[in-house]
Every structure is written in C-alpha cells, then in structure tokens.
C-alpha cells in the first residue's frame, strides 16, 4: 500500500512538472521532449490502475507515432528565431490564468462532491478488465461497429493529410 502511494505520488509530481515545463518552454523541440516525458508518466499511472493494454498502446501511439510526427514538423518548419514569437506578460495571459483557475476549481468541486458512493478499488477486478485478452475480446464483439468506423476515420485522415500538405492544389 505504501509502495503504491510512493509510485503514484512520484509519477503525479513528475507528470505535473513536465506538463508545466512543456507549456512554458520557448523552444518547441524541448517542449516536445517534456511532453514525451509526460506521456511516459501517464503510462506509468495507467499501470498503477492495472490497465496494461492502454499503457502499452499509449506509449506506442503517442510517444512512438504522434510525437515523432511533431518533431518532424518542428524540424521541417525550422522556426529559427523563437524570440519573434516571444510573448511577455499580457492581459490575455492574466485572463488565461484566471479562467483556467476557475475551471480547475469547478472540476475539483465536482470531483469532491460527485465521487461519493463509488465502490472501493478492487485490484483483481481491475486486473481482469485491463488485460489484452479481455479488451481484444470486447473489441471484436461488443465494440465491433465503432472499431470498423475507426478505419474509415483513419482513411479520411490519411487522404486529408496528403491533400493538405500537397505542394500545389489542383
């Protein structure tokens, strides 16, 4: 139990810290690297919840595919002098801070009052739900239709990306 708490708190602190660093860095490459660190922390948190399949595909899809795409685009664009994009303390930033603080308080109040009566954590049950075997069985029976629709979505994304990034539209 103590070990679980240590793992959770260290992963939580690391994920919040890397998220903060990601948002505040000027250089997009460094921001992307902090985002990858954040993804690894989240994968660890999924493992503390016994969601092994989600943890593995999270690493594969996010850190492996999406962030590589981000880094490619950052390097393709070759943004150069980042100070041109630099933004000092402006009214917009103060409003952003206030608004997001209000949003945080709203979410926390919902989570404090709305989570009463939930069942206690049952590790055996969670372990049974999170395995690749169980998720695969559900994916190809109960969730077969959404799974097939996903393929159409990905096809549309491929065609759209090629059309948008083409040199000359004809």
């Amino acid at each position: 139990m103590i070990l679980e708490s240590i793992v959770f708190y260290s992963l939580a602190v690391a994920s919040v810290g890397s998220a903060l660093l990601m948002v505040t860095r000027r250089n997009p490459v460094i921001a992307a690297l902090y985002l990858i660190l954040n993804f690894f922390c989240l994968a660890g948190l999924y493992l503390t919840l016994q969601a092994q399949f989600i943890a593995v595909i999270h690493i594969l899809v996010y850190a492996g595919a999406i962030m590589v795409l981000f880094l490619f685009v950052i390097m393709l664009l070759n943004l150069g002098d980042e100070r041109k994009l630099s933004d000092a303390i402006s009214p917009r930033k103060i409003i952003a801070g206030g608004l997001s603080l209000a949003l945080l308080l709203e979410l926390l109040s919902i989570f404090v009052t709305g989570t009463e009566g939930l069942p206690e954590y049952n590790a055996d049950q969670a372990l049974q739900v999170g395995t690749v075997e169980y998720i695969g069985k559900q994916l190809f029976t109960k969730f077969l239709f959404p799974f097939e629709v996903t393929s159409i979505l990905l096809l549309a994304a491929i065609i759209g990306a090629i059309l948008l990034a083409k040199k000359k539209p004809d």
């Binding site: 994920s15 998220a19 903060l20 921001a31 954040n38 994009l85 801070g97 603080l101 949003l103 989570f111």
Partner: peptide, 26 residues
C-alpha cells in the same frame, strides 16, 4: 483536473501553433 488546467493555460496563453497543439494533446 490539474493536467487539464495546464493544457488550457497552454492553449490560451501561448501563441506558437505547435505548442498550442501539444497542449491539446495534454
């Protein structure tokens, strides 16, 4: 909730489109 709030701050306060995009992923 805290991570979501950090993402919201990134989307509203930053002006670099790529970092805004990464905040959405967050």
């Amino acid at each position: 909730a805290i991570l979501f709030m950090i993402g919201v701050v990134g989307v509203i306060a930053r002006r670099n489109a790529i970092i805004v995009f990464m905040s959405i992923e967050l």
